[in-house]
Design a protein around this nucleic acid. Sequence first.
DNA 1: CCTCATTTATCGTCGTACCAAACTAATCGC
DNA 2: GCGATTAGTTTGGTACGACGATAAATGAGG
Lengths: 233, 233
Amino acid sequence: MSGRSADSITLDIERSIVAGELEEGRPLPAERALMEQYGASRTVIREAITALTAKGFLKSRPRYRPIVCRPDASSAMQAAGGVIKHLLDNSRGVHDLYQVRVLFERVLVRDAATGAGKDDLKRLKDALDDNQAAIGDSERFYATDVAFHRVLYTISGNPAYPAIHTGFVEWLAPQWSRMPRSEQRNHDNFLAHQAIYEAILMRDPDAAERALVDHLEASWEFVRSTFFAGENE
Amino acid sequence: MSGRSADSITLDIERSIVAGELEEGRPLPAERALMEQYGASRTVIREAITALTAKGFLKSRPRYRPIVCRPDASSAMQAAGGVIKHLLDNSRGVHDLYQVRVLFERVLVRDAATGAGKDDLKRLKDALDDNQAAIGDSERFYATDVAFHRVLYTISGNPAYPAIHTGFVEWLAPQWSRMPRSEQRNHDNFLAHQAIYEAILMRDPDAAERALVDHLEASWEFVRSTFFAGENE
DNA sequence: CCTCATTTATCGTCGTACCAAACTAATCGC
DNA sequence: GCGATTAGTTTGGTACGACGATAAATGAGG
């Protein structure tokens, strides 16, 4: 990449982090200490720190020591997010991403319908009840809406799924969280969630998938007409 | 993030890139020119360049001017890859990622079965034929194997899908591309591909999905026993 | 007009210095 | 004795200047 010196140091610190030599959550050693440790100038050390920060291995606030971040699925999503948010400045980019989300959830509801356990169904039901209870409060409704979908991402136990969900929510938030809401619309959405839940309960993957797709496509159409009405599809 | 000065410059250059003021593929202005333009020291400029490089907006080789890179789905995957590759040092991480791939392709084959056009089917058939023709040449077989699956990612027309496929292939390559291969195994894999193709041709999404899952799970089991035999599931 | 040597521009790295903010410890007042 | 205040130290953020090495530009020579 850039400089050879800084690169090898970057790699070595990266290695130290994943190897656990640098404890997660602890601050990185001082720059002057690192320059002694690596026998390099501060320029190089700072360059390595900058790169590691951008890569997601460090979290640095303006005047504080960088905090060590062990990489996980969530940081991977965050790293991708830095680029992805620039792809979402038109309806095309947003729709492309939204399609990925739809694709993802289609499998999740199918799997939920065929393989969800008792506790999974209970968590889903609880989320649905929360959703219903929040119909009158649009802000809280949005939160419970997200939470309901999130349950789907937690059923498999794969830690990557919730991270992916977080990514979707964050990236799509510019449109979805700013959507004009109403009690009527909240109620419609709740009914859609209920339909999905019912289909899962009935162990009917096809119906669940159909209910989900209907729900998400209606949601997209609403967003499209709200934010991208002027753009030609 | 890190420094306030460098940060605003980073953001502004980023903006210039996505706005097209800095043409894609062209080299970035010289550091001295930028320090004059932004009224900052070289230290700051270089820090901004480092950050942008790590973020994927610049490609810089050791002694050359950084090349401007417009972000796309592919660079987003690449950014995530920097973190993801550290999650793949054990069977757990690899399996988690592999599951995501399986999830993705399950929908792709379903959609192919229900909605693939004539040309899509032809491309799939061509890829299948290539695959069959390469059974005797394991290296070429691997390439045609990847190509066959890739066709599935291109059917929807969503540009994010091929980028995601590239990510999967790259991240999983350490295991899959190094797999001990044989004509027998190639032939088995070809038959699996053929079964998927047949099911798609028959417009049977359930059969296509089942064939795909069987194929991918067998593949995983082979990888697991080869690379992670010692680890306890 | 093309080739090769020389000059120049530019990057990679280093060192030093200064400021301001954060941290630490000693001091002061209760 | 203990909490609050203050002075000193550490550390990150930024700037300037310098030097070697290499890529790109330039000019000499055929």
